[in-house]
Design a protein around this nucleic acid. Structure first.
Lengths: 345, 345
DNA sequence: TTGTATGCGTTATCAA
DNA sequence: TTGATAACGCATACAA
């Protein structure tokens, strides 16, 4: 036989289809006689009945899927986050639909619209910008939303983020401990909370530790990418040779790798001539030519927490608020790319 | 107004809902008067009508999604393949549902069943084993299937794979050119076509080039992972110190990294003391402490071709056959991990 | 060429 | 507690 339907189960159990439906749904089980319920459940089990998610979605205008919106799955930051999300969703029988926006707002809108047409029960958003009209809209439409990694300003939506400021403080303190005084900074897009917050925390921590980071030593890239880091670092290196700073912190690992490239091009060795640090704790950082000091963020846990929170909201039919946000702890991973300043620096 | 339905469009256009349906579907457009068709389309456009994919799926028992079955998205091999697939699917308005099997056959079955219940129009499978009963089943059930990266024996299903044998020949030839004569091999799971084929090609190429690879210099791991490569290499290194071979080829990059770890533990430097090569051309290989020689496979193109083929099958309502398979060309990327044998070797 | 009617597999409302 | 029936939004066989 083909896939059995509710009809088949009802027939085999000798009850009406409506009764079968009630018996099989935990929410309505109480409205049916215990013994008939058991019988129906047993029959369903025996026939291998599985409710058709499509029919169910059509009726209820909701599916057991949730949507994940990320910039690009080829960015190594995301796969472990995704595994964390899936792991949690699976426990509740939800599945995950992933879309890549490539940081294109039009594309993002289109893809989210497509997710909604598939009746996703909620959205996890990793593409938030500090100002993000689309997210306002979605929130206003009553959609269950959880931001991850980045958050958005003035938006009353929960966000699961790494402790950006803590991480940046750890990095600056680490450089200070090594004896650095003059430190440069390559930030990420200031339109993102991570870009903005890490930059702010950098400035604050530099002041706290009585280090020096002149205006001309700080810049930001408009993409979280290796080329972005390369361009930014090249710019910082233009002014004076050798550079007036002895170290540079990049707002993420890809930017840091770009910084390393720019240094190498000028005959400078990361770690030896100029200390370089990144952020995020990507895989394989420990195997690089110059192992990169970074701040490890709890990728899996970020995903799990975001999924957990979203499932909770969905279960209680709520939309959530920023008060449910959580900042997850990060960890400094010192490696060879940061070392005491070279005497010639 | 809420999302307009076909009903709304029909009403606004002054036609029956059935006519509106026919006008809006390219397949049935010819069955309706050109002018009314145009009118309906214009109205649909104006109202921003989008057919409800859920309702459509319920009716047609098919969705515009296709399923992708991979072992683990955290394996850096897959993200670029996924982007390739998505890119092609998007052009036809299909979306992609990804599941991770973690190489667990029960899990794989369950997840595929779930994809089918969501009425995916076809499946791209990256988890094929040489013997794979589940795939036989799916094929027998008339499902549109395309294998990617690996294929399966005696299964009349198209597969898009890298030119494994070519790649292995390139690697062996490369080592021979460098002056190596004694070469070891760490294979992947021989239950997979890639594991099996790369191992066979290795043996053949060694013979062709008149190199030596004794039985005790060849082993295989049961996982495509760094720990797997580490364990396998450790085993090969147990016999004699220093090793009797001057080079080792691993069947993929992760295994190769594990080999490097095992060498380092014994005070041997990859590239200097023992040449090491991998396979797949993962990202960041050029930035490693010892940049890893590898064979680059065309990740994106693999994905695009597989998607292209599957869409074609779906469009023609066919199930496909192995004759449609394609082997995509690969490219040797020599790096510092392979060098002339050390004089002391 | 267009309209009518039915059903895809559920859930939910209303009676019994 | 259970059964009958409608409806979710769409596509299609059939009738006109």
């Amino acid at each position: 036989m083909a896939r059995p339907t509710l009809r088949d189960v009802a027939a085999a159990a000798g009850v009406h289809i409506a009764t079968a439906s009630r018996a099989l749904n935990s929410g309505t089980r109480s409205k049916v006689n215990d013994q008939t319920a058991e019988r129906v459940i047993a029959v369903a089990e025996r026939l291998g009945y599985m409710p058709d998610p499509v029919a169910r979605s059509l009726k209820t205008a909701r599916s057991r899927s949730i949507g994940l919106v990320i910039p690009d799955i080829a960015n190594p930051l995301f796969p472990p986050i995704i595994r964390g999300i899936e792991c949690r969703l699976e426990a509740d029988g939800y599945d995950l639909a992933i879309v890549n926006t490539d940081n294109d707002a039009r594309r993002e809108r289109r893809l989210i619209e497509s997710l909604l047409s598939r009746k996703v029960a909620g959205l996890i958003i990793a593409t938030a910008r500090r100002e993000h009209a689309l997210l306002e809209e979605l929130h206003a439409r009553g959609l269950a939303l959880v931001l991850i990694n980045r958050d958005s300003e003035g938006l009353d939506v929960p966000a699961i983020t790494p402790a950006d400021a803590d991480g940046m403080r750890l990095l600056v303190a680490h450089l200070a401990d090594l004896g650095h005084r003059r430190v440069a900074f390559v930030g990420g897009p200031p339109t993102t909370s991570t870009g903005w917050r890490r930059a702010r925390a950098f400035v604050d921590a530099v002041r706290e530790h009585d280090l020096v980071s002149r205006g001309g030593w700080r810049t930001s890239s408009d993409s979280w990418s290796i080329p972005g880091g390369h361009a930014a670092m090249s710019e910082l290196l233009e002014d004076t040779t050798p550079p007036a700073f002895t170290s540079v912190i990049a707002a993420n690992d890809l930017l840091a790798l770009g910084c390393c490239d720019a240094l190498c091009e000028r005959g400078l060795t990361p770690g030896t001539d100029i200390s370089v640090a990144g952020f995020n704790g990507m895989d394989f950082l420990d195997r690089l030519a110059v192992p990169l000091t970074s701040v490890r963020i709890p990728h899996r846990a970020l995903g799990e927490r975001a999924a957990e929170l979203l499932l909770d909201l969905i279960g209680r039919n709520q939309v959530g608020s920023a008060t449910m946000s959580a900042e997850l702890p990060v960890q400094l991973i010192p490696r060879a790319s940061t070392a005491p300043p070279s005497p010639t620096g």
